[in-house]
Amino acid sequence: MENVQTSTNINFTPRITPKSKSLWQHAWTQLKKDKLAMLALTVVTLYSLIAILSALGVIATGFDKEVGASYMAPNLEHILGTDIFGRSVWDKMIKSTEVAMSVGLVTAVISIFIGVLLGSIAGYFGGLLDELIVWFYTTVSSIPGIMLLVAITFIMGKGLFAMYLALGLTSWVSLCRLIRGEVMRHKDREYVQAASSVGCGDFRKLFVHILPNVLHIVIINFSLQFQVAIKSEVILSYLGLGVQGRPSWGTMIDDSKLELARGVWWQLFAASIAMFIVVLAFSILGDALRDALDPKLKGK
């Protein structure tokens, strides 16, 4: 983005301008002004904290212990009631944050790694390599995502690890497309030519010079991926392909399909609300990041 800055600062009268802000500083200032986005950021931080604390065994340690009778309605002692085995639904909900956040994070990291790598190589080198990568992602995107997910979890077996891989391997195409397009736009710009003229190799130009300039797309995509993965976890758990032997919002919602007819609504409620809040927060954050980081949308 530096080149944009310099081209707008060409003026012949010497003037003392305050040190210009980078794109990131601008974005952060703008984000800070957006109250809703800051609230969303707080929520996301809180969920991450809960997930870490529960993973370390500090909170929700009693999620698998019997604390009362089966199917106790929400009361003062157990504010979200108990499940069929008399376990606290509140503790299960908290413990499930761990699965949700880890699925979101790992999936997003996998899909960003593949998307950025393939997208930037295709966009930068062009030619046959580009044709091949475009062919590959068109192929992958032609297969309905759910079928790919199912196929991959079949092969990998069930459980958390399989879910990470399946969701990561099926969600990189849209980012790959975006990165490819952006890298193509950037590769002939002056700053890249300048980098060549001082003797930078292809990989240095691509990863050190161009990539930082398309990083904002990755960040926006990250928050999108994160919440899509959290939502997909629920579907996979319903299909019986999700985590086994530990609570997750997906397994909780799946359990509740047999409970509703008996009037036991609290497990569905707890898992849905917990998920709703964090997914909503990621959506709001993603939109705010897009507004703050995407220069094309500035002023709209």
């Binding site: 919440q227 629920v234 919602i253 849905s272 998920m275 709703f276 997914v279 909503l280 959506s283």
Partner: peptide, 22 residues
């Protein structure tokens, strides 16, 4: 719209079936 999208589709189905049909 964002809020509608943030709920799990399973939650809609389970709630709808239980409340409106059952």
């Amino acid at each position: 719209c964002v809020a509608l999208m943030s709920l799990s589709s399973l939650a809609y189905i389970l709630f709808g079936q239980w409340f409106f049909a059952f």
